[in-house]
Amino acid sequence: MENITIYPKNKKQKSLLTSLLEEMKIRYEVVINKEKSLFTEDEFIAKIDKSLQQAASG
């Protein structure tokens, strides 16, 4: 069987989705991602830009 991964944006969406799945008697699993990013999105973009500049300059 195939899997579907859904990423609700907020608690309301999560609640609605879980209610729907329960009503339809669809087995589901809630996985809490405790992994933290080592840096923010802006820091990540800055690191990529720096790497691109280094590559361009040799």
Results as ranks from 00 to 15, higher is better:
E23L: 05
Y7H: 15
A55D: 13
D49Y: 08
K47D: 02
I4F: 14
L52W: 13
D49Q: 03
V30E: 14
K36R: 08
G58Y: 11
E2S: 12
K50T: 00
T5R: 15
Q13H: 12
T5Y: 15
S15N: 11
T5V: 14
E22C: 06
K9G: 02
L38W: 09
N10P: 02
K47L: 11
N3C: 10
L38M: 03
S15Y: 14
L21K: 00
S57H: 09
D49I: 03
S19R: 15
I4K: 13
S51E: 08
L52V: 10
L21I: 05
E2H: 06
I45E: 11
Q53S: 01
E22V: 03
N10K: 06
K47N: 07
T5L: 15
L52M: 08
V31T: 14
P8C: 06
L20M: 12
Q53G: 01
L38I: 13
R27W: 02
N3Q: 12
L20F: 13
L16W: 15
E23H: 04
T40Q: 03
Q13M: 15
I6W: 09
K50C: 00
I32G: 01
F39D: 08
K9C: 04
L38H: 05
K14A: 11
L16H: 06
I32M: 05
K34R: 10
S15Q: 15
T18V: 14
M1F: 01
K11Q: 13
S19V: 01
I48C: 04
N10W: 05
S57D: 06
V31G: 04
K47M: 05
I45A: 10
F44Y: 13
R27Y: 11
Q13P: 03
E43M: 13
L17W: 11
Y7N: 11
Y7A: 03
G58F: 11
L21C: 03
I26C: 10
E22H: 07
K47P: 01
S15G: 00
K14W: 02
N33R: 09
L38V: 06
K36A: 07
I26Y: 00
L20T: 13
Q13L: 08
E43P: 14
I45C: 01
G58R: 14
K25C: 01
K12Y: 11
